[in-house]
Write a protein that binds this DNA or RNA. Structure first.
Lengths: 235, 235
DNA sequence: CATCGTTGGATTGTTGAACAATACTGCAAT
DNA sequence: ATTGCAGTATTGTTCAACAATCCAACGATG
């Protein structure tokens, strides 16, 4: 041992190891399924069936349910069970209000952001363009999520990042409610490219304006699609 | 029954009734205790003792723990138990970054905000002044929370509001880590008053600048207090 | 003397079964 | 068409048990 143990400081912190409980593992699997749309919005998750399928007790499964309910990916209805969240038109508007509140200021403040954060934005743009070249529509959606997550990260708060991830995950659910993945992601790539370009040029205001337009357009698109849906599925 | 049943529309929606499970009730109690500082930061919450005290099973109690851990009021350490969160200096900085990201844009966008939201800000100011008159220092803290919650509400997103509440609750924990409630809240009342005044005058930019100053000052105050503390409590 | 293995006790992690409370379905009665 | 009332299925909650893990204390080791 040397007198100074600065080599210890280079080791991963305990927060990174993060031993994971059974409930969290189940929650992770379910989260992935829900976000990937393999569990359709509105579907009920039976405690008995799922606990048998995942080989965990009902109590453990319920802990997992609590976690995902807090993330708004599942909704817990007393004595009725938990269901995959089924966002409404109102949710769509709220989600976009939240995104405006988070992303726009993050972009406007990008002047103080360290360079790697800007690069992450660029990486997400390229991921999207690669996915487009491969006609991988679902991955295009993921890339778009990463893009906006990277925008949110410009605000430089771990808590905001976490919140941003949640909001985007929920937004992704919206796309599952209506089955139209392709056309909805298609036109947004060039927008992302322009936003990134403006950011690297240091013109945060231009980036913010492009973003505001994007959000307005996307919200409009989803909201109209939803109002049509809800009229026909009123119950 | 009349042909139109618009009287039904006036009834409280199911979302407002919200049947509450045992776990949620326990979580509510614990949340209040934690925020009010009756449970000191860092204290471990024994499953056995608490389940006996609140007359609930360990499993139910654990569900409550999961809820509060998601809110960052408790921290769950694998095989060690749950503890009342004990924010660090880093947390303080992150919390204020989050608040800047949320509150400043909310205030800047206050032009589009409906009038009742602005009035809520004013109400919080008055609550604070009443508490000050009564020398009720703890209620002054609550009023300050309400004030900033009202500012966040200007962003008009239920999700952002929820997040804001969480961030403020956590901020409140910070005040418990160091025992100095009085001096820290004292100088902020006039600031709140000025911010509200600028808002009612429609001068959102002035309001934002005052708020930015407030946040910077408050963060500085807390951060220096913390760096002193952590030097002496290094573990 | 500082460090390292071991041991025993305490607490959490997880399970499975049991029972109570509630919601849902279908059918009869009005 | 609505109401009342079964029976059934599912969730809400408890309990007791065991496995897994941490922690403090004690020696052993160099």
């Amino acid at each position: 041992m040397t007198a100074t143990d600065d080599h210890i400081d280079r080791l991963p912190t305990p927060a990174m190891v993060h031993a994971t409980s059974q409930a969290e593992r189940v929650a992770d699997m379910l989260r992935a399924f829900v976000i990937d749309g393999e569990l359709a919005p509105g579907v009920r998750l039976s405690e008995e069936k799922l606990s048998r399928k995942y080989q965990v007790s009902r109590n453990t499964l319920r802990e997992a349910f609590r976690l995902l309910s807090r993330e708004r990916l599942l909704v817990h209805r007393m004595h009725r069970g938990v269901f995959v969240a089924h966002p409404t038109g109102e949710d769509v508007r709220d989600l976009f209000n939240a995104r405006r509140a988070l992303e726009l200021p993050a972009v406007r403040g990008a002047a103080q952001a360290p360079e790697p954060l800007i690069r992450a934005v660029g990486a997400a743009v390229e991921e999207g363009e690669q996915a487009r070249a491969a006609s991988d529509w679902w991955r295009m959606g993921s890339a778009n999520m990463h893009f906006h997550e990277a925008l949110g990260a410009l605000s430089q708060s771990a808590r905001v990042n976490e919140f941003m991830r949640q909001v985007l995950a929920e937004t992704r659910l919206v796309f599952h409610v209506m089955a139209a993945p392709r056309e909805f992601h298609d036109p947004y790539l060039p927008w992302n490219r322009r936003i990134h370009l403006a950011l690297t040029a240091g013109d945060t205001e231009a980036a913010a304006e492009e973003l505001a337009e994007y959000l307005a357009t996307s919200e409009e698109q989803l909201a109209t699609a939803f109002s049509g849906m809800e009229r026909s599925t009123r119950g």
